[in-house]
């Protein structure tokens, strides 16, 4: 082997360890060889650096969102956001049923052409406010609550009119509580006495019609983005964690083969908090938002709760 070939074999990693050491020794002892060696060393190093830079540039072009979502959670996230939206909507029906029952009844004739029972009317009224984030809904409700409290007195004087809304209101409450109560979370069930004053809406029912419809018109084209309040990411499960979940900084991580099937996340607003459920392969799972440790998913067995979740899920 000529010297040049040896140098090349050395840099091309084609020498055994013994040959390498041998060669390094002879380089040290031969000034001419050393010079050539250093020259080649520079070139090879430059080639390596160029290749490194090339690989890094290639990786740099790979789209990875600097923020949270990865490609898998993005596509699923879209689906999830729709479902979350559906859940919020379903739940917000209850908000409005409780707070707006009377008002909507009064505006029934103007807003709706065909006669409907209160629940369905509200359900169809709610989607017009679709794009309002849930916070908005809560806000609206709380203002109504406060204003209604102060209007308590007025309400009394309307005893004649009051009877009908009150009836419907009671009806609402039975519907709501039966649908929604569960041992684990209380989905917004406002107290009856808070609802009462909503009749203040009754007074200016015509004005309300406008304000109720306006947002629908202008917001209807907005995207669902605002409704997506929780991020979800799928991680490939390990042997130990193949059907588990945990929350990190409010973000849900699902561990397991979730990529292979459609899963749905149901977010349900309660008075103080949010309850989160997972629907996967026909079963429901309760997700504890404060669960930071990886824990196993176990299906909800309580049939009545499952039934309620089923109803909420199928509402869209």
């Amino acid at each position: 082997m000529s010297e040049v070939e040896k140098i090349d074999a050395y840099f091309g990693n084609e020498m055994t360890e013994a040959e390498q050491i041998d060669f390094e020794n002879s380089v040290q002892n031969d000034p001419t060889l050393k010079k050539e060696f250093e020259f080649q060393n520079d070139i090879v190093n430059a080639l390596r650096e160029t290749r490194k830079a090339e690989l890094k540039a290639m990786l740099n072009k790979v789209p990875v969102s600097g923020s949270m979502s990865t490609s898998s959670s993005f596509s699923v996230g879209k689906i999830a956001s729709l479902i979350v939206g559906a859940a919020i909507m379903g739940v917000s029906v209850y908000f409005l049923t409780n707070s707006d029952a009377a008002g909507s009844l009064a505006t029934e004739s103007t807003t709706e052409t065909q006669p409907v029972k209160p629940e369905t009317l509200l359900e169809s009224a709610v989607p017009s406010e679709k794009s309002n984030s849930q916070q908005d809904l809560i806000a609206t409700e709380s203002t109504q609550l406060s204003s209604s409290e102060s209007n308590d007195a007025t309400v009394q004087s309307f005893s004649g009119v009051e009877s009908s809304p009150k009836n419907s209101e009671n009806k609402m409450n039975t519907t709501t509580s039966s649908t929604v109560e569960s041992e684990e979370q209380k989905v917004v069930v406002s107290k009856p006495e808070i609802n009462k004053p909503v009749i203040s809406n009754f007074n200016d029912a015509t004005n309300n019609t406008d304000s109720l419809e306006a947002p629908g018109g202008s917001l209807v084209n907005k995207t669902y983005k605002e409704q997506r309040s929780m991020e979800v990411e799928i991680e490939e499960g390990s042997k130990k964690h193949n059907f588990h979940y945990h929350f990190v900084n409010g973000k849900l991580f699902l561990l397991g083969d979730f990529d292979k099937n459609l899963y749905e996340i149901l977010e349900i607003n309660t008075t103080t908090d949010k309850a989160i459920f997972l629907y996967y392969k026909g079963l429901y799972y309760n997700l504890d938002k404060n669960q930071e440790k990886i824990s196993a998913l176990t299906p909800i067995k309580d049939n009545s709760l499952v039934e309620k979740l089923e109803r909420i899920r199928s509402e869209e």
């Binding site: 430059a46 080639l47 390596r48 160029t50 290749r51 090339e54």
Partner: peptide
């Protein structure tokens, strides 16, 4: 290195780095 043709560059990098 930049003056070499694309194939040349690749051959050398594949050999010496990869």
């Amino acid at each position: 290195i930049g003056q070499l043709g694309e194939t040349c560059k690749k051959v050398l990098m594949f050999y010496y780095f990869d």
